[in-house]
């Protein structure tokens, strides 16, 4: 049996209940705690083995010279696919996945994070402001 206006009760219910959407950016929907957001390097733990770069599917990791014996990974979040494979491949837990996901920026440069320069191996310098 067909009839017109099958959704009318549902329309009234929606009209009188709180909307399901939010007024972004004034308010935003939260993400779960282990959300796959921006990967961040913990430089003290990194041994410079390059495993992360080898497995990154998006070529978002580049090993750059920081003055130490081995190069360290630099991230390009403009390329990153947020797959978290780098954190998985790293044997020394030097990459953590943060929940950060509001990453829009005005320039490509602003989306890059380079490791800070080191003088000698194993002895990191005072952290220079890490650019993001």
């Amino acid at each position: 049996m067909s009839r017109i206006g099958k959704v009318i009760p549902e329309l009234f219910k929606s009209l009188t209940s709180a909307p399901a959407t939010v007024d972004f950016p004034k308010s935003a929907v939260p993400v779960p705690p282990d959300y796959r957001g921006k990967p961040v390097l913990i430089q003290e733990k990194c041994t410079g083995c390059g495993l992360c770069q080898r497995d990154c599917p998006a070529a978002a990791i580049e090993m750059v010279d920081v003055g130490a014996k081995r190069p360290k990974p630099a991230f390009d979040y403009g390329r990153c696919a947020f797959c978290a494979q780098c954190a998985e491949s790293c044997r020394s837990d030097a990459i953590v996945i943060t929940g950060e996901h509001h990453l829009a920026a005005f320039s490509r440069e602003a989306l890059r994070a380079a490791p800070r320069p080191e003088k000698k191996e194993e002895e990191p310098q005072e952290p220079a402001a890490e650019q993001e």
Binding site: L11, L15, S17, P19, A20, T21
Partner: peptide, 11 residues
């Protein structure tokens, strides 16, 4: 606005 609210949107 009414259309949106009936669809459970902010509008």
């Amino acid at each position: 606005k009414l259309y949106a609210r009936m669809q459970n949107r902010v509008g």
